[in-house]
């Protein structure tokens, strides 16, 4: 990688993740995956491991594939474990001189396949120290089966299993902080990213994750127009608002050192992020002001803690 990031040069590289896949218009996942894979050096090969997800069903439909690299989809709960086996065997063969060149191992899972069902497998792989990158494209619910809550779904968000009505007001619990949990695995590199602006943030973090030896983790916010209920053209705007309201802070932890990679010039109120999304519509009804207050207080508290940790 040259020292200065240049989007034009990056997009001129041969695509590792091609167009023509079936992801929805306005979906963050495709942008995230192409952004991550673009960070691979041209001469390096990759094995893409994919947990069952929207991404999997939309980018790997027989007889088509959006990946120019080798690919494996095993099941929902075991992508990191599958990748562990692939990586361990590759390195064993490499040590014996049976394979040549460089192969990188990149696993993609949605939040369901990462925060929930795939968590055990991910934790195991990170702890054992496989030389791989696990990328969670986090769209904050089970979108593939029709928008059910996950442990990544934020407080108050409406999903089909956390309905809004006389009894329930969306999800009752706060979002699980998976990035922090992964940091606690003492892995060499963990970061939280988002597809914003010229993708420098995502690109830089992906490059570090791919080319740092050992297990690395990227948690990338991936807005979903169907589940979040926003107009498809608002994808970039929504992602930007998540970052500028500090709902989704961008930071990285390299060898235990925390660093904020983006500090909003003006920290916007959480409302700005919530309002354009249908899943939070009920929070703006009369009498529900307390929900907005609670959401703001939670974000503020998390942000303060992050500032302390990063020494910013």
């Amino acid at each position: 990688m040259s020292t200065v990031y240049n989007l034009k040069r990056e997009v001129e590289k041969p695509a590792r993740f091609t167009g023509g896949h079936r992801l929805c218009a306005g979906c963050g996942a495709g942008i995230v995956v192409s952004g991550v894979l673009r960070a691979l050096d041209n001469e390096d090969r990759a094995v893409v491991v994919n947990a069952t997800s929207c991404l999997e069903v939309s980018t790997f439909m027989y007889p088509y594939t959006a990946y120019m690299d080798s690919y494996i989809h095993s099941a929902f709960e075991n992508s990191a474990a599958t990748c562990s086996g692939v990586e361990a065997a590759y390195h064993a063969l490499k040590r014996r001189g049976k394979v040549e060149g460089t192969v990188k191992f990149i696993t993609f899972g949605g939040d369901g396949g990462t925060y929930d069902i795939g968590f055990q497998s991910l934790s195991g792989a990170m702890e054992r120290g496989h030389d791989m990158v696990y990328v969670c494209y986090d769209n904050e619910a089970y979108m593939n089966t029709g928008i059910q809550r996950s442990s990544s779904t934020p407080h108050f968000a409406r999903t089909t299993t956390t309905p809004v009505g006389s009894v329930g007001q969306g999800k009752k619990q706060n979002k699980k902080d998976l990035t922090e949990i992964l940091v606690a695995h003492n892995i060499p590199y963990a970061a939280q990213a988002a597809p914003i602006g010229n993708f420098k943030d995502l690109h830089t973090k992906s490059y570090k994750a791919i080319y740092t030896e050992g297990p690395c983790f990227l948690n990338v916010l991936s807005p979903c127009p169907r589940g979040w209920d926003y107009p498809t053209e608002k994808l970039a705007e929504i992602a930007r608002l998540a970052v500028d309201t500090c709902v989704w802070p961008l930071y990285e932890v390299e060898e235990g050192v925390w660093r904020l990679t983006y500090i909003p010039k003006k920290k916007l109120p959480v409302e700005d992020f919530l309002r354009p999304q249908g899943r939070f519509r009920h929070m703006f009804e009369k009498g529900n002001e307390w929900m907005l207050e609670e959401a703001q207080a939670y974000v503020d508290q998390k942000w303060e803690r992050l500032l302390e940790r990063t020494g910013a």
Binding site: Y115, D116, I117, T145, T161, S166, V167
Partner: peptide
């Protein structure tokens, strides 16, 4: 099978019942 879970998440809480979405099967 998702509709069964979805319907239960809507119908059970008003009856004082429990719908829990677990982390896996």
């Amino acid at each position: 099978a998702t509709e069964i879970a979805e319907l239960c998440s809507n119908l059970l809480p008003p009856k004082g019942g429990i719908y829990i979405q677990m982390e896996d099967e």
